[in-house]
Design a protein around this nucleic acid. Structure first.
Lengths: 195, 195
DNA sequence: CTGTCCATGTAAGGCGTTACATGATTGT
DNA sequence: ACAATCATGTAACGCCTTACATGGACAG
């Protein structure tokens, strides 16, 4: 279960409240592991009963107690263990591709808006990722562990390259649909960068 | 709910039993919308109560009845309606990227095997996709609807291009980790195909 | 005669989502 | 004065997964 280990990952940097963890997720790993609030609170409680984290209860009169979680030595071990073991990929579900697959039922006038809608969404997301990447890459911090920073940034790089591939594929698809060019690609050509 | 519409999509081609639908999924849309057996049977029952499909019961003495499902006119309408409306992307969850993000906790000797494991898996999947694409593209059927065939094949093309991007990113990442080269990419360079 | 294929389902559990609820503090 | 932020949680539901169960037909 990756959510547990992602939480342990954040707690390995510093103690967090559930609320702050939610923000940390949204600002860093949400594009490959979104987590919602109620899920985080439940999972923290589980990690606590498993002894992988401890909680420090901060009483606040008239309001719910605030709880700051810390990782335990067992938690660190579980994290390292999980990090160094290969895990099967979670399978992806893309409603948009289902639409394309059965797109034969639609006319061009019905299909193209759907394709264009997705293209625009991809362009926007790509612009956001690019800006984010550049702002992150533009402030090298000599105090930080360069390698750890690099690895974290690598996941954003993945988002960028896969989004670009998606956008390019989709833009080409739109052109082909518009031109009624239904020929398959020639994979033996120069597109195939392998070997 | 895409599963319902994917099932309707298959039933729009011909009647199916639950069993045959499972095979159809595995052979075509599984890489972007996997479906398992019990899910399919349950969803067929729901579609039936909603009046989007009808079932023809084929009694087989001593065994459970066989049921062959057909799409209704209402089902066709629901399908077309769903196909022509944009849908928000289902969010992705990639345990591997969580591992990379928190990879700072691992040594090169621990991290590299994980990266290489995933690279090899990607290479294998890519080889499978490439072979599949070529076999599909290599048998043009003049009887079929060229456009519909093209659109279905387009989803496989997406799988290919995104897998290639993934593989290339991962291969480069491995090289950089091995070289201790932790510099970020320069996105203003020639890699950025946009504009 | 053992295993795989055909073909149906049920049961239980896990993970994730949405909506609701509380109540002080800070910003416009 | 009103909204957003801080900070916690609960309840209910939905979708998907895993495991189990049945039983004939057919292939090696």
């Amino acid at each position: 279960m990756s959510l547990k280990h992602a939480i342990l990952g954040f707690l390995s940097f510093s103690p967090f409240t559930g609320y702050d963890l939610k923000k940390a997720f949204d600002q860093s790993v949400a594009h490959f592991w979104p987590a919602n609030q109620s899920q985080i609170y439940r999972t923290l409680a589980e990690l606590d009963t498993e002894g992988l984290v401890t909680k420090e209860v901060i009483a606040r009169e008239e309001r719910l107690d605030m709880k700051r979680y810390q990782i335990t030595e067992g938690g660190r071990q579980a994290l390292r263990q999980w990090l160094s073991t290969p895990h099967p990929p979670a399978d992806t579900r893309e409603p948009f591709l289902v639409q394309v697959y059965f797109g034969g039922h639609l006319t061009d006038a019905e299909l193209l808006p759907v394709l264009q809608h997705n293209l625009q969404a991809a362009e926007e997301q790509l612009a956001g990722f690019t800006a984010l990447y550049q702002s992150q890459a533009g402030r090298p911090n000599p105090l930080a562990d360069q390698r750890a920073v690099f690895l974290a940034l690598l996941t954003l790089e993945y988002g960028l390259t896969s989004l670009r591939a998606y956008r390019d594929w989709l833009a080409a698809a739109i052109t082909r649909v518009q031109a009624h060019d239904y020929r398959p690609l020639d994979l033996t050509g120069p597109v195939n960068g392998h070997r």
